[in-house]
Design a protein around this nucleic acid. Structure first.
Lengths: 200, 200
DNA sequence: ACCTGAACACCGTTCAAGT
DNA sequence: ACCTGAACACCGTTCAAGT
């Protein structure tokens, strides 16, 4: 019953971000309009401009928040499997896939458009680099335990990210053929992908 | 000097597709409007509806045409290196990357949205499957020459596609860190990616 | 069958005005 | 400083009308 007039007081900015995430989940990318976001947050259609210079800036904020949550999930899983090197990499990859599947349109938005004016969203870039550094550390742990081949950890991390990200993108866009999806579960396909590049 | 009033006669449909591709190259995804496409083709803003049920259908047609061109390029390269098994896979991958880089926004469009109503665009699906079958044949040739590990060719093809597609997507979205891009050229990075999964 | 022009609902953005 | 409401340009889509 609370949170009704709550918005007007302090944190409209975050309320707009959350409203955007909800609309993304319900109506998809094409259904995300600034006016709908404002309506859902209970303010006029021009109110968002007090907090974001334009629609792109709202999307950048949604993406930045998305990367923060992705970091939480991935680092939690990496921690959980710290003592099981044989499963750590696959479980981290699986967390990434689930994150994408949980909120498909937010994930798509996180990897589209936003970066057109690179320098304009330093928080977004910082959050994205933070995620890459996390992956890099996980890769180094896997190299140390002999699960991944040696070599510059940034390049190997790019390989791992690329193979999982590519799979996710193809899956989200419906590009993976029915005959393949009938043979293997998504989880099995991720494992198959990863095994191609892992040792043992 | 010809092709001015040419449109009105026979092939407005293709003229609209071509206009769309040009706008995509010049103004990007966000600049692609049905009204601009119509204007560029020299017809009224409602004329496109005689050929496409809605904007999605035009985008589907642009994507389908894109897949056709991708097929031409990839199959030409695969043919060219048919007698050099050691280079065929990398050159095919490089052709894919170049295709994406040549027309970034068209490539993005080819892998976004369109498939939301799956069954609605049978030509798109057919063309996309045709590309996958081509890749599968290339993979089988590479398995035969010992460049790729054995296993179900559709799954291995998915691996190869995923690793290259993931790299391209991350590159297009500016997600590959500057420090990595300073160390290696795009071509070298593609080779590095591919080597992770290839034998020898 | 193919195309036009008016019309409608919706959108991003700006700006003068209010608190 | 933050928000509202009117206004403007642009958009997707529909439809009656023209050829």
């Amino acid at each position: 019953m609370p949170k009704k007039k709550t918005y007007h007081h302090g944190d409209l900015k975050n309320a707009l971000i959350n409203a955007g995430v909800e609309i993304l989940a319900k109506d998809g990318v094409s259904g995300l309009s600034l006016r709908k976001v404002a309506l859902k947050a209970g303010v006029s259609h021009s109110a968002p401009y007090s907090h974001f210079v334009d629609k792109q800036a709202l999307i950048a904020a949604i993406s930045t928040e998305g990367f923060r949550q992705l970091y939480e999930r991935v680092s939690a899983v990496a921690d959980e499997y710290k003592t099981k090197p044989s499963r750590q990499m696959i479980e981290v990859a699986w967390a990434y896939v689930q994150f994408a599947l949980d909120d498909r349109d937010r994930f798509k938005v996180m990897f589209s458009d936003v970066l057109e004016k690179e320098k304009e969203y330093p928080e977004f870039i910082a959050e994205s680099q933070r995620n890459f550094q996390l992956l890099r550390m996980i890769v180094e742990a896997n190299q140390a335990s002999g699960k991944l081949r040696s070599g510059p950890s940034d390049l190997v991390a790019l390989s791992v990210w690329g193979i999982v990200h590519g799979f996710v993108m193809l899956l989200l866009e419906g590009q993976i053929s029915h005959t393949v999806l009938e043979k293997k579960s998504v989880r099995e396909l991720v494992e198959f992908q990863l095994k191609q590049i892992m040792l043992d």
